[in-house]
Amino acid sequence: MLPGARRPDPARPGRAQGLHPVVAIEMTRIGVVRNPKSHGNRLHPPGPAPDGVILVEPFGRDALRTELETFARDGLDLLVIDGGDGTVRDVISLLPHTFGENLPMLAVLPSGKTNVLAIDLGTPDDWRLEEALIAARRAEPTVKSRPPLRVTWADGHRPCLQGFFFGVGAPVKATTLAQRVHKVGFFHNLAVAVTIVTAALRAVFGGSRDEWREGVPAKIALDGEAQPEGERFAVLATALKRLPFGVMPFGAPREGLKMLDIDAPPRRLLKAFPMVLSGKVVPALEGLGYRRRDPREISLAGGAPFVLDGEVFEGGELTIGLGPSLRFLVG
């Protein structure tokens, strides 16, 4: 969750100073949601926002929702998210409940530990608020669209979540491992590499009873069609096109919802793992229990916890689909 809780400038000016109209949208009302405890912001604390730009640092989901409701009520052209993937997930999960269909342009400052969304968008590693404001002034700024994953519970008692990388099974274990990796000082792509390699070694060379080879119960239906039952080593889904280090577990980059479904225990993992990550179409993988799919909607039951953009959540009867596309200012 987002720490801190302040609104440095309670007055909301009508026009951000120094900004000029751009094609299709006049980015005159700009808000920033900053996570001061994100890795990058702790290492290099940013200064105050420029005059006319409203900066908030809400603590917790309720405070974040309140700030976003204020932004939506007063009107916003550009919402800058200054944090990592978890901060992005928290913000975009609340957009349908605060802005409705009148979504602002978004910009992501990659100040987290991994910044997978920023990698996919091609946002420079050192992109800061100043660069985002310069991009907003351009006559023809570079904008990319990405639909987020939307995760909903069948019981309807919890609000939906939106993010960009979903996982069940091994990804949940890998998330716990990644948190330990971060504690010993590995971040960004190096953290991703250490996590992938360590998890792969455990899964390949661990014994038959090793926890990394164990599956989780999962009942899956794709677009309403039930899939063979059984335990899963991993179920992954994303709407991103590009992942760190160029790995392509979902196959060649393409639009839409993409899924990788792996049986447990994973068969011939030492040989299959490189082929899966390469993105190559290898017919033998299907027979070994490694299935790539492009569904419109995934129904998942079994109760296993899942990870969404770096945080583990309680499982249940879930539906994973795509939310409306979000527009990101990237340069």
Rank of each mutant, 00 (worst) to 15 (best):
A135T: 02
R180C: 00
R158G: 11
V172K: 13
E130H: 15
V143E: 05
T152C: 11
A170T: 03
I134N: 04
K173M: 10
L129Q: 11
I134S: 03
P148C: 03
F166R: 12
A136W: 10
A154C: 09
G167Q: 04
R128F: 02
T152Q: 14
T152R: 15
W153M: 12
F165G: 06
W153H: 14
P171N: 08
E130A: 15
R137V: 00
P147D: 07
S145A: 15
L149D: 02
T175E: 05
E131R: 06
P147R: 06
G156W: 13
F164M: 11
F164C: 14
R128M: 05
K173W: 00
D155F: 14
P141F: 09
R137A: 05
F166W: 02
A178W: 05
G156R: 08
G156A: 04
T142R: 01
R150T: 15
L133H: 02
G169A: 06
V143S: 00
C160Q: 14
A174R: 10
V143Q: 02
A154V: 10
W153F: 08
R128G: 01
D155G: 10
P148A: 14
A178T: 08
R138V: 03
R128A: 02
H157P: 03
T175V: 02
R146G: 10
K144A: 13
E140K: 00
D155M: 11
R150Q: 13
Q179C: 04
G169R: 04
A170W: 00
W153L: 09
A136N: 08
A178C: 13
R137P: 05
T142Y: 00
D155E: 10
H157K: 15
G163V: 13
A136P: 02
F165R: 11
F166H: 00
P171M: 03
A135S: 05
K173E: 10
F165C: 10
V151D: 05
A178M: 15
A170I: 01
R128V: 01
K173R: 13
T176N: 12
S145H: 03
G169H: 12
R180D: 03
T175S: 06
G169L: 14
F166C: 01
G169W: 06
H157A: 14
A139Q: 11
V168P: 05
R180W: 04
P141A: 08
R158Y: 11
I134A: 09
T152N: 12
R150E: 14
K144P: 08
P147M: 08
T152Y: 07
T176G: 09
A132V: 15
T152M: 13
R128C: 11
T175H: 00
H157V: 15
H157I: 02
F166L: 11
R137T: 01
K144Y: 04
Q162S: 12
V172G: 13
K144T: 11
D155A: 14
S145F: 03
R158A: 13
V143K: 01
P159A: 07
V151N: 07
R150I: 12
T142M: 00
V143N: 04
T152S: 12
G156M: 09
